[in-house]
Design a protein around this nucleic acid. Sequence first.
RNA 1: GCCGAUGUGGCGAAAUGGCAGACGCAACGGACUUAAAAUCCGUUGGGCUUAAACGGCCCGUGCCGGUUCGAGUCCGGCCAUCGGCACCA
Length: 848
Amino acid sequence: MSERRKPYPFDRIEPKWQTIWDQTRAFHAPNPGEEKFDPAQPKYYVLDMFPYPSGAGLHVGHPEGYTATDIIARYKRLRGFNVLHPMGWDAFGLPAEQYAIKTGQHPVVTTRENVAKFKTQLKRIGFSYDWERELNTTDPAYFKWTQWIFLQIYNSWFNPETKRTEPVSTYRGGDPDIVRLAYVAEVAVNWCPELGTVLANEEVIDGKSEVGGFPVVRRPMRQWMLRITAFADRLIDELEGLDWPDSIKALQRNWIGRSEGAEVDFKLGDSQKIRVFTTRPDTLYGATYMVLAPENPLVDQITTEAQRAAVRKYREEIASKSDLERTDLAKEKTGVSTGAFAVNPANEERIPIWIADYVLMGYGTGAIMGVPAHDARDLEFARKFDPPIRLVVQAPAGHESLGFVGHGVAINSPLLDGLPSIEAKQKITAWLGENELGARSINYKLRDWLFSRQRYWGEPFPVIWRDGKHEALPESELPLEPPALEDFKPTGTGEPPLAKAKDWIRYSENAQRETNTMPQWAGSCWYYLRFCDPGNSTHFVGETPERYWMGGGKPGGVDLYIGGVEHAVLHLLYARFWHKVLFDLGHVSKPEPFQRLVNQGMILGEDGRKMSKRWGNVIDPLDVIEIYGADAFRCYEMFMGPLEQMKPWSMKGVEGVSRFLARVWRLIMEENQAGEWILSRSVQEAEPDKSQRKILHATIKKVTGDIETLSFNTAISQMMILVNALTNAPVKPVAVFRTLLLLLNPFAPHLTSELWQTLAEKFPSASGEITAQRWPEYDESFLIEDEIEIVVQVNGKLRDKVTVALDATDAELEAAALANQKVQNALAGKSVRKVVVVPKKLVNIVAG
RNA sequence: GCCGAUGUGGCGAAAUGGCAGACGCAACGGACUUAAAAUCCGUUGGGCUUAAACGGCCCGUGCCGGUUCGAGUCCGGCCAUCGGCACCA
């Protein structure tokens, strides 16, 4: 690149201040009891979603949220808070392992290199992280505690009576293995042959793996599960007290998918019965057939001899399909009769039992009652297979009752006729209860968390197997490090790569180690806790630092958490679950991890497309910083638009913001004959004039308020307005600039630090570095004017503006408005009907 | 299909129910310069009126309606785009 003249010497001052900050430990936050800790100050914990350090390095999307949190961190420090603002690395995971398989380079090596690259980039942007708290999920000193937390989960159960996690020792029902929060089960898992591993439901998108996009098939395997479903209600209810976007709360509620209804038993013969779950027990009289999921074990017992062959064939067809195919073919309902009949408990009718793949084994009881008149899927099925259709809900006027799925009035239902659906539900549920035919019931879409992976690059389970039973490893044997494997390719059989480490597996004469590893989510489920006390070698987090940093009057501990919306249901749900377990067991002080959550919007390429190698529109922050400097980069990221919004990158926009910063520089600095930057002679110890003072205080007010609401774009706009107003002032009062520099400091820390220092050398009226100052306060009295401009409207349309005294009465305002020439013109030929006066704002004359 | 978000100049955007388009980009004009860059100053939603300037008038926040003295903002109904879930009984 040619020697391009810099608008101001950011290339000199930015590295200078970054070095100073490092050397003075400027952003180190001491823990309670440590040297320099000030207990008189309130705490503020502002957290980023820590990155997975990929080989590609950061692109400009990553630092958007990081810049926002950095502004908040620097602002809160100036406001006198003890600020915890840490950064670390979520470094276990599939990409490093895939890369290792391709290149033969060990994940430890690639992880180290990638972390170094990320860290260089982040440091060059000037983020004020407390790097002394840096952590890495692949560090044995860290994952020792990930494994320790797993043991807490393993050794716990959810007591449905107390609705809390308790040690398994309090379980009185016999074998504790059946209630542990971590358990082994033979489940139909998402097996991805290409990746050689199973995946969580959340990692499968449209029947393909989220990583790589490879096909995923259902396959029964023995897996570790975490009993997150026990916490479903709490995970929904306790969203209430959190300052999260409603859309994210909705996403989580949706994912958990709580639905209330009833379970109803349909008798088969004298002793057998089939239980169904329904949200519409009020339509029981309309149930004219039943459907079982093809996988339902009852199918074998009830199928008649005549239907056996057809049923077997159908089940084989279904089994050979992937989930994708199964849902893809949803357009056309399929099914086979079992030949068996059940009895509708409401009217004692004999109804046929079918199997069909639109009924899922994994939800409810794996069986439904078919109410074709009032369920879209059942109606579709009925149109093909012809069971009777009976209307049992009268739709409101204007709606067709056949196919009506909303609430109406019960008909053709002797016990319920005339009742609105909601009352009918209550009545029939009570009736079912009295006759021991059913009961109220709640179902969730949320499934237990499939927690094991057949991978190398993850935390090994601290578990051994003896005589076919699992046992916890003693705490003293943690961390359990993975074996040093040369070959960590998937075995292809579903057996984990760790199985290749024969010596490692052998725990003792008769015990072997578990060979699965934990999923990538494990490390990120609790990293925010470790940041409170990252060096602790005896506890996962010390009680005092946890209480301090995670404290406060709200349910959640982290005061502000910013990250991408892609983690709305994965990371955020898992972390809340772990946190609740730790809370119940008394290891942490708050029921929720994150009090205030904000999702930054994605930054698109200049072409409006998602940034990706494929489109060649990826922007590297370091390239931008090379040309415009880190301060301009930071300010542009915030000036683009609202933080939460998706928005396209624009180099021209960076240039505009860079011009603004250069103007700030030149307000204070000028070039001498030799081409050196020196303090401008117009900067003087002087009183600001009235208009300068007014705009300055208006700016303090606006910027302060905007930072609190994360409206950084408008905060920058206001500072631009201030700078524009000062540009041609012949005398530039130092005090005005000091305030401007403080307001701008969180956004452009290097530039403002340098200018602050330059001013301090010449004018000793302020001492210490800018980071040691206090945030400016505004004085409302400077914002008030003697005269104000009032808008005058006729019939709501702007006609003119008049200037009146601040304390003008309503009558004076009205008189001034009516006397206005333009108003008179507009009123010509009309009579005034009414006059609306809004004090200090406007007068609206209604005429006709 | 269900849930959620978003629709404002050429572009990114701003506006406690009270002056729509702040601030920035781009464009155009001017100053400075031998010239350019940089910098500084100004114009810039659309249309009509006027010889021109000044001025004046009308229209305009996805569409249709409503509430209100007054709606980008509140309410109802549509349309479009994006995101999530999706045979969940």
